[in-house]
């Protein structure tokens, strides 16, 4: 019973932090609330017995993504956030509530029957049965790094080409004189 209460409190805390992150008018507090969601999700994962995934989630979700978001916010600055939503908020609330109730009603019967099959360790599953996933992860990481390098280096190339243009213009002026 205590375990259930802990899970419930963690879930509700994560949902509250997620809601605060969503409705906040500034991006920096939203990022910090997202880090809180990630930390609470990591605790939930740890309690569920997925220690490795919890560590990955905490280091990547609460660490790397938060740093990246803060960097992006420092580059773009604070915009005037969300003057009005795309669709009316009451309609969005009704739609989301309906989806949540339907999802809960579909998943709830599946969780009541827990069978005790043979438990295979994560390392064996990851490196032997799901080896292709590991290669996909490696390819994803490389493609992500390349994509970011390409996108962020475009500004430098533009500046360099601008610097190259300026001397030629000055030369033309000298010729005219």
């Amino acid at each position: 019973m205590i375990e259930s209460v802990c899970y419930l409190l963690l879930g509700m805390g994560a949902a509250f932090c997620a809601y605060r992150a969503m409705i906040s008018n500034h991006l920096l507090p939203s990022t910090l609330y997202l880090a809180c969601v990630s930390a609470l999700a990591s605790i939930t994962l740890y309690m569920l017995g997925a220690q490795e995934v919890a560590v990955i989630e905490l280091s990547v979700g609460a660490g790397l993504v938060t740093v990246l978001l803060v960097y992006a916010i420092s580059v773009v600055g604070e915009d005037n956030l969300d003057p009005s939503s795309i669709i009316p908020k009451p309609l969005a609330f009704v739609l989301v509530s309906t989806i949540a109730i339907l999802a809960a009603s579909m998943v709830y019967p599946l969780l009541t029957s827990v069978n005790g099959a043979e438990q295979v360790p994560l390392a064996q599953v990851l490196w032997k049965e799901r080896a292709l996933d590991v290669w996909v992860q490696v390819a994803l990481i490389f493609s992500g790094v390349m994509g970011v390098l390409g996108l962020l280096s475009e500004k430098e190339q533009k500046n360099r080409s601008h610097e190259e243009v300026i001397p030629s213009v000055e030369l033309e002026k000298e010729v005219h004189v």
Binding site: G11, A15, L111
Partner: peptide
């Protein structure tokens, strides 16, 4: 049941996420 308690948290998080996706217009958000 503990698994159902986790399920409630997952559904709440999903609901907040979908709601945010519907009403947000800022790219970073």
């Amino acid at each position: 049941d503990p698994l159902n308690a986790v399920l409630i948290g997952v559904i709440l998080l999903l609901a907040v996420g979908f709601y945010g996706l519907l009403i947000t217009r800022n790219l970073i958000k």
